[in-house]
Structures are given as C-alpha cells and as structure tokens.
Amino acid sequence: MAALEIEHVEKILRGGQAVLRDVSCSARDGELLVVVGPSGCGKSTLLRLVAGLESVTRGVIRIGERTVNELPPQQRDVAMVFQNHALYPHMTVYENLAFGLRVRGTPRARLDQRVRLVAAQLGIEAMLKRFPRELSGGQRQRTALGRAMLRNPSVFLLDEPLSSLDAPLRAELRRELAALHRSLGATMVYVTHDQSEALSLGQRMVVLAGGRVQQIDTPAHVFQRPANRFVAGFVGWPPMNFLTADSFDDVARVPAGQGALEYGVRPECFSARPGGGDDLQLTGRIERIESQGSEWDLELTHRLGRVLARLRPERTLEVGEQIRLWVARGHLHAFDLTSGARVELKP
C-alpha cells in the first residue's frame, strides 16, 4: 500500500480542450478517497492519468515515493475496476483473476492459492470455471474486483464500479466494498457521479466540476459547509434551494454579508412551525405534494420563485394552500452572487 499524490495536474487534449485544470489532491496510505462530479467533469480522466492509460500535460503524480508520470501502466502497481467490468470474455473467472499474476510469472502453486483466497473473500469460489457471459451482473462485478485485489496493488482505482448494477445490488456491493476496504487497508480512489454514493462511502471526497477541484473534505464537512454554490447544489438530495434575501418575509432579519449574496437552504431544513425566536420565515403556496413515506416533498411558489421543502407535516396539506415555513438562521448557507464562493455569516 502507498499514498497517492496528485499535484497541479493538467490534461489538455490535442485539440486544445482542457479536461483537467490544476488538479491537486491526495489519498493517504489506506484511505478511501471518493472523486465525485457530474458527467464530463474529468473524473474518469483523472483515474486514467493515475493508471497511466493517458499522459498528463503538466503536473506530477506520485505513488508512494515514486513519481510515476513517465511509467507505463504495467509498472505503476495500480489496479483498476472499470465501469463495464472489462473482463476477458474468452477466459474463465479463474483465468480472469489469475491473468495479472500469470503475466508476472508467479509460480503456479502460489497463484492458485491466491486466486482461491480472493475468490473465497468475494464469495465467487463456485464460479471459477464459468465464463463472464455466464455470470450475473453482481458476479461479474465481484470478479472485476477480485482481479484488482489479486495482485495486492499499491493503489486501487475504481471507475464507477457499481453504476451498471440495479439499486438493491448497488447498495449491497457498496457495503461490501466499504468492508473490503477496511479489511484490506488499501488505498483506494473511487470515482462516481452519484453524490449519495460519495457521501456514504468516502473518508474524504473530492468534488470535481469543469475539470477543477471544487472542494476536498470529509463528506460531513462537504455537506455542512459546501465551499461554493456548485458544491452546495450538487451534494445532497433533494438539491439545495437558492434564494435571495427578499424571498423571505422579513428582509431586514436576513443576515447580510459583504456584497450581494445568495442564500441556500436545504429542503429538509425547513420546518412547518417556528423553532426559535430568530428563525426566518417564508410564505408560499403549495403547488405540488409528493409523499416520500414518512416525509413530504412540497413544491411552493413564493414571492420570487419556487422552493422545495421536505417536511414531516402534523396535519393534512392541500395543493393551493398558503403555508408558512421557518428555517433556523444556522441552516442558512450564503454564497457570493457573482463568484459563487461561500460567505460565512455572522451568528
């Protein structure tokens, strides 16, 4: 195992299009780092750069003590799990797992032992003689994971490994993956476009957009203190509402900061009754009600636009009804209207 360091990495395509711009981040030895961002943000490219499948335009990539910029993938001691699994279709599960050790000339007995151990860890011992086309989606995914585990690489690279599976299986494998990470103590970089996956899985997460790092922090911090308007809107579901000061009933009580501000309120931070004395108040008309089981998603139109609130109502609500919502000042996020950067409000 080893730490991974990415310093000021840029990737500019031959046509001049910049895919990654000055990206710096690192995964500590044994850490599970999640890279999350919308599609096209450059997160898969980042993984391919680390794997050596593409070359960096500028910057340094270090694995452990080694600078690997110039090394081909074969010599980087990384393993990668692809979104589409990319198993070798003409080889059995056993051969798929064994291939990496086989090309390195590992003695047969040790190879066999290692394949069986990893297969047992992943619960695919019974599948060893099957071909990939004879496996279910989950089994293929486990085989792909096993292939990566077999060599005990310094760094695991996982490129949306679960996105091709259905939701229940995805949740199951996500738990398994987290457990696996703990038991292997491996350095992992996990790329996903699914912010909920990033929140639940990562020890730290890197939010990437437009080829730039937006924020690097623990999931809790990213959620509680998003660095800018993009992160605030991207992380968390349903997404944060963005409001101007005069959306609230009493503009004067909205905390102000330097320059023009935009305020963010997460849908679940609204409440149907006042909590404390300095709660802000917002009045709107219910346009749509959607039950989420114990909670209700309400779409309201207020004076200046629309807002989504997730509530646990104490009485039946009707579409068309006027309703008053409260939000604690502490739940208010503020962003600079022009730059989008987070602005700290005075308590």
Partner: peptide, 20 residues
C-alpha cells in the same frame, strides 16, 4: 477497456496481442 485492463494487469503489448 479490455485492453486497458490487461495493460494494468501488467501484460506487455505483445502479451496483450497474443493472449487477449
């Protein structure tokens, strides 16, 4: 990706050609 996987698995280009 199948070829990329083989590359990461450590196979030389010649080995990839032959085995994959």
């Amino acid at each position: 990706e199948i070829l990329d996987a083989a590359r990461i698995d450590g196979a030389s280009e010649w080995r990839i050609y032959r085995s994959i």
